[in-house]
Amino acid sequence: MSDLAIDIRNVVKRYDEHLAVSDLSLAVPRGTVYGLLGPNGAGKTTTIRMLLNIIVPDSGTITLLGTPHRTRGLTDRIGYLPEERGLYKKMQVRRVLRFLAELKGVPGREAERRIDEWLIRLDLKTKERDWGLAKVDELSRGMQQKVQFIGTLVHDPDLVILDEPFSGLDPINAQALKDSIVELKARGKTIIFSTHLMDNAERLCDSVCIIAHGEKVLDGGVAEVRKAHSGRMVALAVDGDSRARIAPVLSDKTLVARVDDNNRYYELELAAGADPQLLLRRVIDTGVPITRFELVLPSLHQIFLERVGARGVEEGMTGHG
């Protein structure tokens, strides 16, 4: 048995003239939480759909859980939460869930038992009210998200694929989702999710892959990736009134490649070959009171900006998460 949950090799997918995924290779070890990061339109959803055999790659191979991904019955071991979510609106919640479970090969009675468990666990079935008997469109948006989530996990998949799972979630459901991901990992499941929210990825993922324009920019363990980019980032904070006085130093391109003003402090990316000590001296020379000067590990967000660049931001990167 291969110890890789997902093994993508040299996958290419082209739409008309547009290259959606270009020669992508990925390896996701079993039992890890893996983040697929990238701006909108980077090819994340296309990659995920290829994993699920919804679309077929033009070339390259995909192996899931040690089996070629088009093997019959393999999808029964995969749970999928698409970015665009929806359920049959006029159908009873329990029946939708049973339908989804049976599509994954869970026998009816077993499905009913698991649905009960999940409904109780996510507070959809309480002493006062059993929402399982309601129609989907009678549920609030938050409740529908929970139902969708149950639908993803009800067949207890070994590999869970979540496309932008945090988008549109209210904070309570986002917390529940995060807890579930951690719990799934503890039970030895593999979780891969795509996101453009770097903070989530940084908190949750063991490993990440950043893709942009259909190409892999970098991948690896979160700690290693951050370490590999260390020594180039400085956190600098000065007394609030004197921010204007250090502006000339920060705009010196021989010292500072990029400035990210976070209001309470700056995150600076050092220019190539620049010495952080020299930067410190220059700031001291201005005479402003320094409250923080620290060589920091860059956040995934910073690494993302550094590697994908402003182009990615313009093409839909939103927010810090």
């Binding site: 699920l52 055999n53 919804i54 999808t75 029964d76 995969i78 999928y80 939460l81 698409p82 665009e84 979510r85 929806g86 359920l87 049959y88 609106k89 989804l100 599509l103 994954k104 969708q148 639908g151 993803t152």
Partner: peptide
């Protein structure tokens, strides 16, 4: 309703 995508990932 976008339910299609979940369904076609299973069948």
């Amino acid at each position: 309703t976008r339910v299609a995508e979940v369904v076609v990932s299973s069948v």
